[in-house]
């Protein structure tokens, strides 16, 4: 009698059958809708849902739409104002919280930073609307910039804090030991080493500001429309291929910045 010499396929005990396929479905679920959206932006049909052929016409049309251009400019003005403000505030906070040792307002201050993440966005949006309205502050884009600065702070803070925690505190002591005073230690050691972290924080804050919709919708008055708010009004009027085109561009922009951030961070870590 011949014994069967067929070897059973070896599988590590921590390898579960089916999990790989499930993960593929998971990523499909995350990315297929985005993929479909981008595909349809190249659809030549006037009706967004029916595919008739490949075309760039909706992208071309964007460049003749003044409203979209104004909204885009507004979005960039807000992000270029709010992200640097948030980054500066986050940098100083991180320096005090990571390098400041133990002190009385420590817990309170780190609580303040995470507060915008804890409160539901719709509540922040409504509260800020009431706040500006009841104080009679109606400065158009400046209202939006203030609101964006607030919720960008925690996002700018995270990478800066991480960079500062990863930095050997002895480096600053070594500089002090080598006859450099507080100011020049900050300029020659701390700041150059922290720059990648600060830039990362800026990028995240920038993306968060560009993408924000709910708070901007509530806070922005007429004339202060940003791109997401404009897209929302277009969607509400009915799905048009133009929405697909401008949405695809926005997605591409965010993904570009975040990918940049990722490569940048990987370089720091190596």
């Amino acid at each position: 009698m011949q014994t069967k010499n067929k070897k059973r396929k070896f599988r590590y005990v921590w390898n579960f059958p089916g999990f790989g396929g499930w993960t593929a479905i998971f990523f499909g679920f995350l990315y297929i809708p985005i993929f479909i959206l981008v595909c349809y932006s190249f659809n030549s049909s006037k009706f967004a849902m029916i595919w008739t052929g490949f075309s760039f016409r909706w992208y071309a049309k964007l460049f003749s739409n003044d409203d979209i251009q104004t909204a885009t400019i507004n979005s960039f003005i807000v992000a270029f104002a709010a992200a640097p403000l948030a980054t500066i505030i986050a940098t100083f906070s991180a320096l005090a919280l990571v390098r400041g040792g133990e002190f009385r307002f420590r817990e309170f201050s780190s609580g303040l930073i995470t507060l915008p993440l804890m409160v539901p966005e719709i509540v922040t949006a409504v509260a800020t609307l009431i706040f500006f309205a009841s104080l009679g502050i109606n400065l158009g884009l400046i209202n939006v910039i203030i609101a964006h600065t607030v919720f960008c702070i925690p996002f700018a803070f995270m990478p800066i804090k991480a960079a500062l925690e990863a930095m050997d505190p002895n480096l600053e002591l070594a500089a002090r030991d080598l006859y450099s005073d507080k100011t020049s230690t900050f300029k020659t050691i701390t700041l150059p080493l922290l720059t990648p972290g600060i830039l990362s924080g800026f990028m995240l804050a920038f993306v968060i500001s560009i993408d924000d919709f709910i708070i901007t919708l509530m806070v922005a008055g007429g004339g202060a429309t940003t791109l997401p708010v404009y897209i929302y009004s277009m969607v509400k009027m009915g799905v048009s291929p133009e929405v697909n085109a401008v949405s695809s561009l926005m997605l591409a922009f965010s993904i570009f910045i975040v990918t940049l951030y990722w490569f940048f961070n990987r370089k720091i870590n190596n």
Partner: peptide
């Protein structure tokens, strides 16, 4: 070296911005 003064100066912008434009609105609401 007096750290307290440094800490307060560094955290002041945070306290003002979050305090005035986050906690403020919640209180008004």
């Amino acid at each position: 070296e007096n750290k307290t003064q440094n800490r307060i100066l560094s955290l002041l912008p945070l306290w003002i911005v979050i305090g005035f434009f986050m906690i403020g609105p919640l209180l008004v609401m």
